[in-house]
Amino acid sequence: MLDSTTSPGGLFADDKQVMRCVWCRATLTYQQYHDQEWGMPVGDDRHLFEKICLEGFQAGLSWLTILNKREAFRSAFADFDMDKVAVFDDLDIKRLLLDAGIVRHRGKIASTINNAKRAQELRSEFGTLATYFWQFEPGLAERPSQITHQTLSAMATSAQSIAMSKDLRKRGWSFVGPTTMYAFMQAMGLVNDHIEGCAARVRAAVAREEFQSPAPR
Rank of each mutant, 00 (worst) to 15 (best):
residue 209 E to S: 15
residue 17 Q to D: 11
residue 169 R to K: 13
residue 24 C to E: 03
residue 177 G to N: 05
residue 81 D to P: 04
residue 45 D to S: 00
residue 25 R to L: 15
residue 101 G to W: 01
residue 56 G to S: 10
residue 81 D to H: 04
residue 177 G to M: 08
residue 121 E to D: 07
residue 125 E to L: 07
residue 78 A to I: 11
residue 183 A to V: 00
residue 216 P to V: 09
residue 173 W to V: 00
residue 184 F to C: 04
residue 171 R to E: 02
residue 92 D to P: 01
residue 164 M to D: 03
residue 97 L to S: 04
residue 127 G to Q: 02
residue 9 G to Q: 12
residue 14 D to K: 03
residue 20 R to A: 01
residue 53 C to M: 14
residue 93 I to L: 02
residue 89 D to G: 10
residue 130 A to Y: 06
residue 210 E to F: 09
residue 45 D to I: 00
residue 116 A to L: 04
residue 114 N to R: 13
residue 109 I to T: 08
residue 145 S to I: 07
residue 178 P to F: 07
residue 142 E to Y: 07
residue 154 A to F: 03
residue 201 R to W: 11
residue 46 R to L: 09
residue 184 F to R: 02
residue 120 Q to F: 01
residue 37 E to P: 02
residue 14 D to C: 04
residue 76 A to N: 12
residue 216 P to T: 13
residue 36 Q to F: 08
residue 73 F to Y: 15
residue 95 R to V: 12
residue 153 S to M: 09
residue 32 Q to G: 02
residue 201 R to D: 10
residue 210 E to Q: 15
residue 56 G to C: 09
residue 216 P to I: 09
residue 107 G to M: 09
residue 121 E to H: 05
residue 152 L to K: 04
residue 67 L to H: 15
residue 7 S to Y: 09
residue 172 G to R: 14
residue 58 Q to G: 00
residue 24 C to D: 03
residue 23 W to F: 00
residue 78 A to S: 15
residue 52 I to R: 00
residue 42 V to I: 15
residue 37 E to S: 12
residue 132 Y to G: 04
residue 77 F to Q: 12
residue 112 T to H: 02
residue 91 L to C: 10
residue 100 A to Q: 15
residue 29 T to Y: 10
residue 155 M to S: 14
residue 19 M to T: 11
residue 107 G to D: 14
residue 77 F to I: 10
residue 44 D to G: 08
residue 180 T to R: 07
residue 91 L to M: 11
residue 6 T to D: 05
residue 140 L to V: 13
residue 3 D to Y: 05
residue 73 F to M: 14
residue 38 W to I: 12
residue 74 R to Q: 15
residue 196 E to Y: 07
residue 49 F to Y: 12
residue 182 Y to N: 05
residue 134 W to P: 05
residue 31 Q to D: 12
residue 63 W to I: 13
residue 137 E to Q: 11
residue 166 K to E: 11
residue 210 E to H: 12
residue 96 L to K: 08
residue 198 C to V: 03
residue 166 K to V: 05
residue 29 T to D: 15
residue 181 M to A: 03
residue 107 G to V: 08
residue 202 V to Q: 13
residue 40 M to P: 08
residue 146 Q to F: 05
residue 63 W to S: 06
residue 110 A to Y: 06
residue 22 V to A: 08
residue 42 V to P: 11
residue 126 F to M: 02
residue 20 R to I: 00
residue 142 E to V: 09
residue 167 D to S: 14
residue 29 T to K: 13
residue 18 V to P: 07
residue 70 R to Y: 09
residue 149 H to A: 15
residue 159 A to R: 10
residue 50 E to M: 02
residue 208 R to E: 14
residue 118 R to W: 11
residue 23 W to I: 00
residue 183 A to E: 00
residue 174 S to V: 05
residue 186 Q to T: 14
residue 105 H to V: 04
